[in-house]
Design a protein around this nucleic acid. Structure first.
Lengths: 340, 340
DNA sequence: ATTAGCACTCGACCATCAAGAGTGCTAACA
DNA sequence: TGTTAGCACTCTTGATGGTCGAGTGCTAAT
């Protein structure tokens, strides 16, 4: 048995309806819709076929059918047309995004907010990170007697800072001096190269070993490590508006995941800098997200750094809208943060 | 009618029981408990009195009684003994808190986590802020062609940073020069004094006006403004474990509040640097928190800066435990962040 | 002043039932 | 041969009613 045009048509009608209503859809409903001009009986036969093919599930004998993950897969791959975002929405996004500061962190936060408001799902955004993060400048700013703030400026324009301990006999100007020397030596290096360079420095130099070791350690920690970088979540309560979350247990499980960034972060990063990924239901690795879908998109900052945005919603999410919003948002952030 | 000792005893027994079970408590239950050695009938009479006095409510005729907010108020003010935190808990807190970095932001985050884990309620912590925040040092770090990172170190050890635009003809050393001059001039000043100082500088000086204006603006924004500073929330899903949140609508309302930091922040800050505040149910300003209680405590960083922690839970929360944990946590954070 | 006894109230729980939506199958139809 | 009408059947949903038990308030006895 193959999928002919009529089966496609009916399947699409079913999914469209189910996405809207979350109610198992019956043959009559489809027939009335107008988009498919067959009698309920005919549609029933087709639905029976579609169920056998694994595209539809039946919660119980006398209910309508609901789309299976396989059906959604087909839907997003072939059936649904991604429309452009509406003029108004686009304007709203850029306007809100451009408010106040253009600090990366602030923009990210606002983006998460807009995404979740627009889609009414839950949004995630990672701050930009880069495989080939390069050091551009290093500066030590004295903070107190024997601590200083280590600031690392990278090619991504991202600033990582951390407090380090410095020996007592170091004064302000010496720190500045050291900053300049290190900046010159480390300029343009990736983290692994920085590590090598430090090895060299250690070989050649015999003073300040302790401070330098502390610096390297801190840099590793803040830049190299990045086991899970910053991530912002928006609209965590949005999913409660959908009937699939009428059950408090489900809500609990979901919110639990949102709180454990360690779990969430890899999910986003594994998508990498690919333009889009869509994970439907069981395609997600996390068991807690088995009946959610995750759509991700990426944005760039400059040429080397990328961040990932994601939308989590029920499997019956409005993929067309989500993809179009994410797509636009990707461009908007890229423009805003890369702009000179 | 006055509250005699027996009424106190019975009321306390009722509240204790209700905090534990969340089930309306009847006269028999209390009588069996042993702590009150009267027959159910006697207790019933007393309960009837307590209801008339406004300390107990009756959901319906044939149910037990539940404590009113007024009762909780009495409870926390006079009835409950705040115990010291257990040895084990104390150790767990300090251990976990001391892990990895001692960066303020990191400590705060971990503290929120520990608080919510230990109490099983939702925790909030603001990063430290100060009425009399004083500038200690200013430094400009070049980031790209014509932008620099403005770093302000304050007496609270807090670092605020922001990107500012600088004229093209400024090089690295000039920025350093300027940083030193500004640091010297602004050292020890509060934000309002900084504003005055800038006015002076403007009068005397005719060069670099634009840059200076940008600096002032940015500092206002980052330090002066602080409409709502950083705040971390932990255990937002914890409340779902309590029967009062079996209703999804309530969950939604609650999570909604947690997301709007603008609402939450004043709640914490209004508590100020007072050692403790306890707001029970309707004593809270936010309508969404009418049947929650909020307990806050403060911590210090150095001598000038304070932050606020809070625990939100159902009105029938375990006040004794919450207060003891918050109290200990306050000291722990203060120690950790003030330590040289 | 306290308590035992008792009638009364009310929600929780359960079984029963009717209504309605949807199906699968069969037979009729174009 | 593909499509459709008809019909018996299934299963959920919501309403109804009855029982059970926890808890109360009152009265009378201690």
């Amino acid at each position: 048995m193959r999928l002919d045009d009529r089966k496609f048509l009916i399947l699409k009608a079913i999914i469209d309806d189910y996405i809207l209503t979350a109610v198992p859809v019956g043959s009559r409903t489809i027939s009335r819709k107008g988009s498919v001009a067959f009698s309920p009986a005919t549609i029933r036969n087709e639905m029976s076929d579609l169920e056998e093919l694994g595209y539809l599930d039946q919660p119980h004998t006398s209910a309508g059918r609901i789309p299976s993950p396989k059906a959604y897969r087909l839907y997003v791959d072939h059936l649904v047309k991604i429309s452009e975002i509406s003029q108004g929405d686009a304007q709203q996004i850029t306007q809100y995004l451009d408010m106040r500061s253009r600090q990366v962190e602030d923009v990210i936060k606002r983006a998460a907010q807009v995404l979740s408001d627009m889609t009414q799902y839950t949004s995630l955004i990672t701050s930009p990170q880069s495989e080939s993060l390069r050091v551009k400048r290093i500066q030590l700013v004295p903070v107190s007697e024997n601590t200083a703030l280590l600031i690392v400026v990278t090619n991504a324009g991202i600033i990582k800072d951390a407090v380090v301990r410095v020996p007592d006999d170091f004064d302000e100007d010496q720190l500045y001096e050291l900053s300049l020397r290190l900046s010159a030596q480390l300029d343009g290096l990736t983290m692994s190269q920085v590590r090598q360079k430090f090895a060299e420095i250690f070989r050649d130099l015999n003073q300040n070993r302790k401070l330098l070791a502390a610096l390297l350690g801190t840099m590793e920690d803040r830049i190299g490590g990045q086991e899970h970088g910053d991530m912002v979540v928006g609209g965590s309560a949005n999913l409660l508006n959908y009937p699939e979350y009428a059950d408090v247990e489900k809500v609990k499980a979901f919110l639990g995941v949102l709180e454990s960034r360690e779990k969430l972060y890899p999910l986003l990063r594994q998508a990498g800098a690919v333009e889009f990924t869509i994970h439907i239901g069981p395609e997600n690795d996390l068991p807690e997200l088995q009946d959610c879908s995750l759509v991700t998109a990426s944005y760039r900052v400059g040429n080397h750094s990328t961040g990932t945005m994601g939308i989590i919603g029920p499997t019956r999410m409005n993929y067309a809208k989500v993809v179009s919003v994410l797509s636009f948002m990707g461009r908007a952030i890229t423009d805003m943060l890369s702009e000179k």
